[in-house]
Design a protein around this nucleic acid. Structure first.
Length: 450
DNA sequence: CTAGGGTTAG
C-alpha cells in the first residue's frame, strides 16, 4: 500500500527533486577521524553512537543529522526522541528538510501522531526558518492521509494560515488522495471544487488522480473526457497521464487500444517514457504473453527508450512464476551486461525463489551468492526454502555456507523449519545428521536474538 | 512534498 519511497528514485521527477536547498547540509569535506568513528559506530550500533554523541564536547549539525537518519531508519524511536531533545536543548541549528525527513519516517512507521507532534514542536527548535515550511507542512499532510487520518488532514489544511502558510496544489492533491480513498470519485471532486473556489489551480497530478479513479472504476470514456477537459484548461497530459489511461484500457481487456494510445501520445506532443512500456509489459505478463513482452523490449531499443530495472523485474517476475528459469537467468545477465541495470533485492529474491521452485537449489545458491556480494539480504523465507532444498539433496557443505551467512545477519530458522531440516538430514546415512547437530548448536547461539 | 509500470523497503 505504501509505495512512496520508491517514487523518489524514479527518473521523471528527479530533476525537480534534486534542488540543492532541499538537501541537509553536506558533511565536511575532510571528516575528522572522530567523525568517521562516529559514523561507523552509528552504522553498526546507532544507540551506542547516540551515547557517544551526547557525551561529546561540541556536537555539530552533520553528526546529529546523520545519526537522526540512522535512528529513524533503524526504527529506534526512543533513542531518536532522546536525540531530538538533546538537539533542542543545545540549540543545535537544524534545517526544515530534517523535519520533513523525520515526518516521513514517522509516517512509514505508522506513527502519524508522532509526525503531528514533531511538526508542532518545530518552533521550539533552532530551525533555519523558525517555523515549518510548506514542504514540511505537505509532508505532514501526507503522513496523516497515508495513515488514514483523513479528518485530521482536512482540518490541518484549513488551519494552514495559522502557520503562516498558504496551501498550494500539492497540499490539495494530498488531501484529495485521502478523500478519494475514503469516498471515491465523488469525494475527490469535492476537494477539487474546494481548491478551485479557494483560487488554487488544479495541476496535472490533480487530473491524473481523477483519471486514475475513473479508470479503476472501469469508466474509460469518463477518463478520456477528463483528459480532454484538462487540455482545454491548458493543463497538458504527461507520460504518467497516458500511463494511467493505458492501464485503464489494459484492465478492461483492451490491450490493443492501450498500445494505440501509446503511439497517439507522441502525436499529441508527449514523449513516450519507460513507464508507458511498463504498463504494457505487466499486462502481457498477467496474460503470460512472453513473445509480446520480448517484442516490447525490442521496440524499446528501436525507440531508444532504455529499459530500467522495473521493466526487467516485470519480465523476470513472470518468467520465474512460470518456471522458465533459464530464460529468467539470461535476462538477469542481460540487464546487467547490456543495460548496466543493477538487479534489485526483489529481483534477486524472485530468482532464488524461482530456482527453488523448480528444484534447482545449486543455481539458487549461485544467485544467493551474487545477492550477498551486491550487499542485499534475502528474506528469511528465501533462506529457508534454499536450505531445505539443499538438505534434501545432501549438499551439506552448501547448507553450512548458507547457515553461516544467516548467522552473520542474526537470522535463525523457526522451530518447524529446524524439524524438517533435522528430519531430512538424519535420513541421510553419510553423516549428515552429525554435521547437522553441529550446525544446530552453532546457529542456535547466533540465532536466538531474532 | 502530490499522480505512474514491479516489490520487501528507504
Amino acid at each position: 500500500m505504501i509505495t512512496r519511497a520508491r517514487k523518489i528514485r524514479t527518473g521523471l521527477r528527479r530533476s525537480s527533486l534534486s534542488k540543492p536547498r532541499r538537501r541537509p547540509p553536506p558533511l565536511p569535506k575532510h571528516p575528522t577521524p572522530a567523525h568517521n568513528a562516529l559514523k561507523s559506530a552509528a552504522a553498526e550500533d546507532p544507540s551506542a553512537a547516540l551515547n557517544h554523541l551526547i557525551s561529546s564536547s561540541n556536537p555539530d549539525y552533520p553528526a546529529c543529522a546523520s545519526l537522526l537518519y540512522r535512528l529513524a531508519r533503524a526504527r529506534l524511536f526512543p533513542e531518536l526522541d532522546a536525540l531530538l531533545l538533546f538537539i533542542r536543548s543545545r540549540r543545535i541549528p537544524c534545517s526544515n528538510s530534517l523535519f520533513s525527513a523525520l515526518i516521513r519516517h514517522f509516517s512509514l512507521a505508522s506513527l502519524p501522531q508522532k509526525a503531528l507532534h514533531l511538526f508542532f514542536s518545530i518552533p521550539s527548535f533552532n530551525c533555519s526558518q523558525g517555523s515549518p515550511s510548506l514542504h514540511t507542512f505537505n509532508h505532514l499532510l501526507d503522513a496523516l492521509v497515508s495513515n488514514g487520518c483523513h479528518d485530521e488532514s482536512r482540518c490541518l489544511l484549513d488551519r494552514c494560515s495559522e502557520f503562516g502558510l498558504r496551501a498550494n496544489h500539492v497540499s490539495y492533491n494530498i488531501v484529495m488522495k485521502g478523500k478519494l480513498r475514503r469516498d471515491g470519485y465523488d469525494g475527490a471532486v469535492q476537494v477539487f471544487d474546494q481548491m478551485r473556489k479557494r483560487g488554487v489551480s488544479p495541476s496535472v497530478v490533480t487530473y491524473n488522480m481523477l483519471i486514475g479513479v475513473a479508470g479503476r472504476n472501469g469508466e474509460l470514456s469518463k477518463a478520456m473526457d477528463l483528459k480532454e477537459e484538462m487540455v482545454k484548461k491548458g493543463i497538458y497530459p504527461n507520460a504518467i497521464t497516458y500511463a494511467i489511461l493505458m492501464k485503464a484500457f489494459c484492465s478492461s481487456g483492451k490491450y490493443v487500444a492501450a498500445k494505440k494510445l501509446m503511439f497517439d501520445m507522441e502525436y499529441q506532443g508527449c514523449k513516450t517514457k519507460v513507464v508507458n512500456f511498463g504498463v504494457l509489459m505487466s499486462d502481457c505478463g498477467r496474460r503470460d504473453d512472453f513473445d509480446e513482452m520480448k517484442a516490447l523490449l525490442a521496440e524499446m531499443r528501436v525507440r531508444k527508450i532504455k529499459p530500467d530495472d522495473v521493466i526487467y523485474s516485470i519480465l523476470i517476475n513472470y518468467l520465474c512464476e512460470n518456471g522458465r528459469m533459464d530464460e529468467a537467468y539470461k535476462v538477469l545477465v542481460e540487464m546487467q551486461v547490456k543495460e548496466g541495470c543493477k538487479p534489485s533485492a526483489a529481483v534477486y529474491r524472485m530468482m532464488v525463489d524461482g530456482f527453488c521452485k523448480v528444484q534447482e537449489f545449486e543455481k539458487g545458491l549461485g544467485i544467493l551468492n551474487a545477492m550477498l556480494v551486491s550487499g542485499h539480504c534475502p528474506r528469511l523465507e528465501t533462506f529457508g526454502s534454499l536450505i531445505s532444498g539443499l538438505v534434501k539433496g545432501g549438499r551439506m557443505d552448501e547448507v553450512c555456507f548458507v547457515l553461516e551467512e544467516m548467522m552473520k545477519r542474526k537470522l535463525g530458522l523457526d522451530l518447524e523449519e529446524w524439524h524438517s531440516l533435522v528430519d531430512a538430514g538424519c535420513g541421510k546415512c553419510n553423516g549428515g545428521g552429525e554435521l547437522l547437530s553441529q550446525l544446530t548448536s552453532m546457529v542456535f547461539v547466533g540465532g536466538d536474538e531474532g
